[in-house]
């Protein structure tokens, strides 16, 4: 049985919840309060993850720490289609890894600014974080724009979303909670819309669903006609 050590407002935990939703996996949740009681630094939790970080996933006895590592594990083990992490394609795996590290870097910028604004982490130099986040977003927008131009809707050169998309999504979409506007990143905003329309997408606090997809005309079935005498 899968068990997730989870915190509702954590973008990193949300990555794992997204992956499990996309793969339709059922799992148990143990809630570890990050704020204000800082349960992730408690002695009990440090035994599970000495780094004192969320999320942690347990697959029976096997413990995986770090959101990105969990994504790789879940995709490798449970994605029968092999689209989320196509391990047989070295160039795609390399590309995914590159953006997993980018996603991890966002925790020091966009996520940190959010912790400052929303969770009273006053020792964070928020202006620096925002500036760096904007530098990252500029690069990300340019990357997504040219992918679109080449017919790739996602971060990597694939017709399917990969775990790189999942890993990047939370701290991009939550950036405004840290005072980082996305008004100048139109390609990023379009990618966010597409991401939200992946089947089985779920939301968390602060993230809204996208509008409806176009309903194919053939969905409206044949009408019924009854005749009198």
């Amino acid at each position: 049985m899968l068990k997730l050590y989870d915190y509702e407002l954590s973008g990193n935990c949300y990555k794992v919840r997204l992956m499990m939703a996309f793969l339709k996996l059922s799992y148990d949740r143990e809630l570890i309060e990050f704020y204000p009681s800082k349960k992730h630094k408690s002695l009990e939790f440090l035994e599970i993850n000495p780094l004192g970080q969320l999320p942690v996933l347990m697959d029976n006895d096997f413990i995986i720490r770090d959101a990105q590592a969990i994504l790789i594990y879940l995709a490798q083990k449970y994605d029968s289609q092999n689209n989320w992490y196509p391990s047989e394609k070295p160039s795609l795996v390399a590309e995914i890894s590159e953006w997993l590290f980018f996603a991890n870097d966002l925790t020091a910028t966009s996520s940190a600014a959010r912790l400052h604004d929303g969770f009273f982490y006053t020792n964070i130099h928020v202006e620096k974080c925002r500036k760096k986040a904007h530098d990252q977003f500029r690069i990300f927008d340019e990357h997504l724009y040219f992918n679109e131009q080449q017919g790739f809707p996602w971060i990597c050169k694939s017709q399917y979303p990969t775990i790189a998309d999942i890993a990047c999504f939370p701290y991009i979409i939550l950036s405004e909670e840290g005072g980082i506007s996305r008004i100048n990143y139109p390609a990023v905003r379009r990618w966010c819309d597409r991401f939200k329309r992946i089947p089985n997408f779920i939301v968390m606090s602060g993230i809204f669903p996208a509008g409806p997809q176009k309903v194919p005309d053939n969905e409206a079935k044949q009408s019924k006609i009854l005749n009198g005498n």
Binding site: A220, K221, Q222, S223, K224, I225, L226, N227, G228
Partner: peptide, 8 residues
Amino acid sequence: TNKVITYN
């Protein structure tokens, strides 16, 4: 059309 029933 699947929500419409016509009686003639």
